[in-house]
Design a protein around this nucleic acid. Structure first.
Lengths: 197, 197
DNA sequence: CACCGCCAGATACCATCGGTATCCGGCGGG
DNA sequence: CCCGCCGGATACCGATGGTATCTGGCGGTG
């Protein structure tokens, strides 16, 4: 039985999580600019005041949302490559994941739209850059690990591969969010070329 | 001596061109959302009414701006590859152009930010997709031409190369507009890998 | 156990923006 | 020469992000 014995801090944490959850859905579906704080708060069952009492503003809310999304993405990549199988199986698993990842949800679209916002606020820009560097670092380590494990070498430095894959993913996703005819397999095709030797 | 003998249509065309010119500068410098039509009109020496009498709205103004930018970009690429020299010289010329193209101006940032806007307006989305397809087509033909001329074959289909290069350029530019430490050379590195055999 | 300070969240309000409706003044055809 | 037409100006609206202020109930204290 869940006691109604919840401290104020716990209540606030619940409010915060619910706001992030609702905001994530709306940001991904409608984009950053088209999602108003009023609508997020209302959909979550609160008023705009709740948002401003949990986040410094719209940007900080979006950063919190991006943190959740990034964690999900990292987990997805790890799941694909962690299984005990040969490289081709792993690449296929990753390709399948990338397919549904670059397919419908508009993650990269949100990422780049928010990037435009960040350019007007040094603090937001710094926070976003920090996250991007972590992601590139993670990709680089993963690529290095996979390459070594499979006895392959990359055609260019690992850091270049990481930057290329992140850029390609972001760009491809952004293009695809407009034109679903853009071929998703381009991503894995390029990836194979970069790690082949 | 330039006669003041200008028809009304000519005057309006001048107004339109001036608005596009000013809007291009402000969109690239501050981004789409952060550029208000009031400021554009004022900076151009007109009022907001002039904007709405020349364009259906902010989106159409931005499409006109993108047309100008696209034309400049295409010309830049052609200039790099049209010169009569060996492949490596051409690639170096292109690399130099890409360096200053992906470096400071925030073209790709504008492109992806406007892409987010386009998702809420079918007509705008269609117009943008049309332009993207033309660009990919142009890149594809150029790559095919260069490869054939140099007796090389691409490691993946030409259309894939074109999509990869456009996506990579867009993504890399978007990332770089936030974090200038992201390596520009990634673009040409990947390009070399894709056309080498 | 009663009381009161404090804080999460609500409410009211403001500036700015894209967009629309309406108006004005000078060009150009009759 | 004159009047209709249209490019551009002006006034206004609804929505949005952000700020200031208020309030009611939780939780530490005597």
């Amino acid at each position: 039985m869940t006691q109604t014995k919840v401290t104020r801090a716990e209540r606030q944490a619940q409010t915060r999580d619910r706001l992030i959850e609702v905001a994530k859905e709306m940001f991904l579906r409608d984009g950053y600019a088209a999602t108003s704080l009023d609508k997020v708060a209302l959909e979550a069952g609160f008023s705009k005041g709740a948002v401003y009492s949990n986040f410094r503003g719209k940007e900080e809310l979006c950063l919190a949302v991006l943190d959740v999304i990034h964690a999900e993405k990292v987990q997805g990549v790890l799941d694909a490559f962690t299984q005990d199988a040969d490289l081709d199986t792993k690449l296929k698993a990753f390709a399948a994941w990338a397919h549904q990842g670059l397919g419908e949800p508009r993650w990269t679209a949100l990422e780049v739209e928010f990037g435009a916002v960040a350019r007007h606020n040094d603090w937001v820009a710094a926070e976003l850059v920090k996250r991007h560097r972590e992601i590139r670092e993670a990709i680089g380590q993963l690529v290095a690990h996979v390459a070594e494990e499979s006895g392959l070498s990359t055609t260019v430095p690992v850091q270049t591969v990481a930057t290329a894959l992140l850029s390609l993913g972001v760009g491809l996703g952004a293009l695809r969010s407009l034109d679903s005819h853009v071929d998703v397999d381009v991503f894995t095709d390029v990836m194979r070329v970069l790690v082949r030797d």
